[in-house]
Design a protein around this nucleic acid. Structure first.
Lengths: 210, 210, 210, 210
DNA sequence: AATGAATGAGTCTTCATTCAT
DNA sequence: CATGAATGAAGACTCATTCAT
């Protein structure tokens, strides 16, 4: 019983991770269900016991991988002394960590960026095997904001703005080196993030910036 | 001779506009070369006389449509009294115009956003039937900046940053109403743009902002 | 024990009637074992405890439904004053009753007609849950013939001829209105039946017809 | 040009005859498009250039084969001295010829009988490569009737009745020997045909029979 | 230059059946 | 007896691309 449940879970996980490998190496369109099933050591028909279709699998994967990346970044960054300096330092460290990671995993970047959208992210993150992911990410984020005594009326919109900016500019710089390499662009991205923070927050003890 | 040249041009244009209609209504994957050729009144094989393949066509189309939208926005906005107030006012007007337009042309938004990248944009814009488009857009932009006596070391990076931010957040708000509707998000987008400007420019007679 | 036996019987019956509903509504090929089992509240594997395969089920069903229709017709018709007038009147009433019924149950017609054959009919009718059906039908038929003092050397061949004629022409008229509607064709069918009777029987006190 | 047209026609014919062989030997469901194409020496995709789908092919085939059988029978029978004796003799000869033929081509019988219906017959026969077939058959039939000076108000319904009776009883007798072998049943079928003729016709110089 | 018939690899999906629990 | 997860063969159909005409 417990055995069976576990078995199912492991098969699902196997399918998921196998598919990820293939998507990332051969592209979404270039990967067939047969490929996935075969490499996962399952029958093709079994695939459809776990996912409605190829697209269902993709969306779950995008949300899952995005969450993982952010969570990993949060975990790694929490150890940086720099990142302890406050909310902004934390955000910049996160940005650097993630973009650096993506620069070394261009396939992941391609996969995520082409398919990610805030909606899918929230929805799928909630509807999936890791329903806690998004909540966890958001909790961490709020907590650090609070620890720094930052007032922000729309923390979600701020996060959204940052994620969209970072991922879309990162996509272009890393994948096409256009209009600049990541290295060249990063300072400007940092400054932009700094400024956007000002647009959304009332730093402790001050009135609205600008 | 001139006739023949014209003939070719008109066929190419026909293919392009037909393909756009179909991509926008049935999606890229849902549109076949046969569909395009038939609707354009040409034989399937003829398609390959004008485009290397389906992807070539798409990329040219994305660049073309993006340019058109921006050029149209520039033209329209140049008539606004508001937009005459300076560089920032101009950018905000442009933003409003384009997002409003996209909100009423969601298919265009979908098509552009999924496939647009700064690289493709620059490259294809240059390599295409309207080779002047990108240059023209950029010229206008620089001119207005100059007219407002704004100093900016990296005007291209600024433009890039703005376009990426606007299009990626717009995509989510318009198409998914997530995390907020466009109407709700717009004030924050405006503020973000304002702040990003500060990050990139030295307004006349001042030292670096922040 | 008796309980258990009953249980099995009821499951079998449930499978049978569920399958019939589905076959009739979605067609034989359009119905899966999974559909049947699910709707019957049983597991897929259980199906195979009761039927050898999908075809076994179908054949049993065809025979069962055909028998039911004829038995029902016999029962209904036995109450008609008309049908008391003799063997021919009885056959014509039966014909009308059945064709009328099938006209209002086209799905049944389709299902039966496509799959019925005298062989399956006899065999399956005997091998099935209602092994008496065919015998019962045939008994009734013989009895009425006898009551009318009709001599017939090959009553089974007569019945066969009539059933085949009625069902195949009925199929076409009802389902396709081709070459005529049932209403238009019925008079001719009646006449044909009348004539076929003459071909097979020696009405009391006469020598061979024609 | 003429070459190409011919080429297409021969491919279509090849597909048709190949499919027939396979359907008849492996059954309709047991034959795949791949089988057909391969055996016809064409690519799988080519099949779909000539037929909408498997069912389209089947229907055309059924109509074609039925027509061929009848036309062949008409041609063969026209040489019989017996068949010159009049309309009834002609019909009986036709019946014998066709049933005899089918007894030696049980696969054809199976294929035709399971799928034939008067509607498909007329429609497909008209819509197909041999648009004259049905018309031709019917012409012959009318002509012989006329030559024998037979009056018949509904010649089409008569033909329909006969075809349905002959094919459905033949099916059972030949394929299942049930309720009798063809040999045993044939005399009764003859008598039935004779009688049905009487039901539909006013033989020259007489009033309605019976 | 233009055509469109031909290709055939590739796609997703279905489903009867088995078997470990 | 009953289950339903797993199977995997099988199938129909698509379509970007090529090439002989």
């Amino acid at each position: 019983m417990g055995k069976l449940e576990e078995n199912k879970k492991s098969k699902r996980a196997s399918l998921l991770s196998t598919a990820y490998d293939l998507f990332v190496n051969q592209g979404f369109a270039g990967t067939t269900i047969a490929d996935i099933a075969k490499k996962a050591g399952l029958a093709k028909g079994t695939f459809y016991l776990y996912f409605r279709d190829k697209y269902d699998l993709r969306d779950q994967l995008v949300a899952r991988k995005s969450s993982q990346l952010i969570l990993e970044a949060q975990a790694a960054v929490s150890l940086y002394p720099d990142a302890q300096q406050g909310f902004e330092a934390y955000l910049l460290s996160m940005t650097d960590y993630m973009l650096n990671y993506l620069q070394h995993n261009k396939h992941l970047l391609k996969f995520i960026a082409k398919n990610l959208s805030w909606g899918i992210f929230r929805h799928a993150a909630e509807a999936t095997g890791d329903p806690e992911s998004f909540a966890e990410i958001y909790e961490n984020y709020l907590q650090i904001m609070k620890a720094d005594k930052i007032e922000c009326e729309q923390p979600e919109l701020l996060l959204f703005t940052l994620i969209e900016l970072i991922s879309s500019t990162g996509y272009s710089c890393i994948l096409y080196n256009s209009p600049a390499s990541l290295k060249e662009y990063l300072p400007y991205l940092h400054r932009s993030i700094h400024q956007i923070l000002l647009a959304f927050t009332h730093p402790a003890g001050e009135s609205s910036a600008d």
